[in-house]
């Protein structure tokens, strides 16, 4: 797979919860060639981004959406269920970015690990769905997780399927860092200590030099860029004008976000993603 320059942006404008604003913004963001749109950001979560991500799901053609989730809006049991649903509804175009709002980083790591433990209580090939025999699922492939962390304790099994991508892409922002294995994407400014991740996005502004960023990409220092946008409409246009060319040619528009970005499957994976469900998508 050709290595691609990734484009990411975040929006934390409360007006994004207005459908008259959100619809055109999503269209514009996709037209601008964004690979990822973060709903909210570390330090600014003016809505329930999980609800907005679900609303966005049927409108996505190629872009991934990444709800930003602080602990006050997400117990692992609720998060596991909501993100499983949105990942299916979005055809696997989902990521998530847990952030602290004054909590210790270890609590966010605990939230992530508890949520993953609930997802992993379902093997990826649990569903059978055979009408003729009446066999719906394999009971031996569903387990209680008995997760016990310092902040979160959850037994499971969760009443939600393992997500379509097994786990939605985990995004960690250096502005709210925490340490867990298997981070898919990290966002960090130049010179800022970046969380260990499969891909690194450099936090830049709309005035940064695209040429220098192309060089950094060519040298393998970064895998793409992330911009925190103040408002949607004019800024998305500026973003596209300045940076869209970095990502040419346009990426392949099939498969899940994990597949499109060439990211590895989560390690705890015990079997391939449920074939019967996936085929029907």
């Amino acid at each position: 797979m050709t290595r691609r320059f990734l484009l990411s942006a975040s929006l934390a404008d409360p007006a994004l919860a207005d459908p008259a604003v959100a619809g055109p913004v999503l269209d514009q963001a996709q037209a601008a060639g964004l690979d990822l749109l973060l709903l909210g950001r570390a330090g600014a979560v003016p809505f329930d981004a999980q609800v907005l991500a679900a609303w966005a799901a049927p409108r996505l053609t190629r872009m991934g959406v990444v709800p930003v989730i602080p602990p006050r809006l997400g117990h692992p049991f609720h998060v596991a269920r909501a993100l499983s649903a949105v990942d299916y509804l979005a055809g696997g175009l989902l990521g998530w970015n847990p952030v602290a709002e004054g909590e210790e980083p270890e609590q966010i790591a605990d939230l992530v690990q508890a949520t993953r433990a609930l997802w992993d209580g379902w093997d990826a090939d649990t569903l059978v769905i055979d009408k003729a025999s009446g066999h719906y699922l394999d009971t031996h492939k569903v387990r209680a997780s008995h997760y016990e962390g310092r902040w979160y304790k959850t037994q499971g099994p969760v009443n939600a399927m393992r997500p379509l991508q097994d786990h939605p892409l985990l995004v960690v922002d250096a502005a709210s860092p925490f340490a867990v294995p298997g981070v898919d994407l990290a966002i960090a400014a130049e010179g800022q200590s970046a969380p260990a991740a499969a891909r690194l996005l450099r936090r830049v502004t709309l005035t940064d030099d695209p040429g220098a960023l192309a060089d950094a990409f060519a040298q393998g220092d970064i895998d793409g860029i992330h911009v925190d946008l103040a408002g949607a409409s004019p800024e998305l246009s500026s973003f596209a004008e300045r940076f869209a060319a970095l990502a040419s040619p346009a990426p392949d528009a099939t498969g899940t976000l994990r597949q499109r970005l060439g990211l590895p499957l989560p390690e705890i994976l015990s079997a391939p993603v449920n074939a019967s469900v996936k085929e029907s998508l």
Partner: peptide, 27 residues
């Protein structure tokens, strides 16, 4: 807010799990 079943055993012949309703309604 719990998986279906009894005594720690998940039923094999009932259609479950379902997806989170809040997300379904938002979509």
């Amino acid at each position: 807010l719990q998986s279906r079943g009894a005594g720690g055993r998940t039923p094999q012949r009932l259609a479950m799990p379902t997806l989170d309703p809040m997300s379904l309604l938002s979509a």
